[in-house]
């Protein structure tokens, strides 16, 4: 099964970004900001920092756009990784500065505000996802994806062999995949 090629709108946006058309970034923002902001906020947990990271990410995406290879995957996957990396860098540098100020997750604004504006038709809410993933699976994905943990850190944290981290991550993502169809 080969994946379908990206929609024409995405191809157009990519072409404009590659041509360094600044107005394309406005369209980019309108299309992706909610998803990117949500992920960034989930990682950094502070609204001002999330805003900074989002802006940094826009600049980084703009300047490094030539390194995006559409044949290897969707634009969203690529920009998501740019944002995740910047956000994780942010919390890592913060951990060096102050370790005591991190907010607990349930106080994070991400938990209070409703998710809106999806650009994907198959969008599923967080409630639905958490219902489908069992707690162990969700924990592993969250640690790896949102907390900036390495696999070995996860293995240490959850006191399990490295191989188990790998198979649980696969199992969790498999569950997520089934929700797309």
């Amino acid at each position: 099964m080969l994946p379908e090629s990206p929609p024409a709108a995405e191809q157009q946006l990519v072409a404009r970004l590659r041509a360094q058309d600044e107005s394309a970034m406005t369209e980019f923002y309108d299309k992706y900001s909610a998803a990117l902001y949500g992920v960034i906020l989930r990682i950094v947990r502070r609204e001002e920092e999330a805003e900074d990271v989002l802006q940094e990410a826009m600049v980084k995406i703009w300047h490094s756009f030539q390194s995006y290879d559409a044949s290897k995957g969707r634009l969203f996957t690529w920009v998501l990784n740019v944002c995740r990396n910047l956000a994780i860098d942010k919390i890592r540098s913060r951990q060096y500065r102050v370790s005591s100020h991190s907010q607990p997750l349930d106080e994070s604004p991400a938990e209070r505000q409703p998710a809106v504006d999806s650009f994907r038709p198959e969008h599923i809410g967080l409630q639905e996802l958490t219902r489908r993933l069992n707690p162990e699976q969700r924990q592993i994905v969250d640690l790896l994806y949102f907390e900036g943990y390495t696999q070995s850190e996860v293995a240490d944290e959850l006191n399990m062999p490295l191989g188990t981290v790998k198979t649980r991550a696969r199992a969790a993502i498999k569950v997520l995949s089934t929700l797309i169809r």
Binding site: A34, G73, A115, L176
Partner: peptide
């Protein structure tokens, strides 16, 4: 390649589930 893209989409979906209007 197909599996990889499927994995990426699944993670994208998970990320998107956290979407939040700024």
């Amino acid at each position: 390649r197909a599996e990889l893209i499927s994995v990426q989409r699944a993670l994208g979906l998970y990320a998107e589930a956290h979407a939040l209007t700024p």
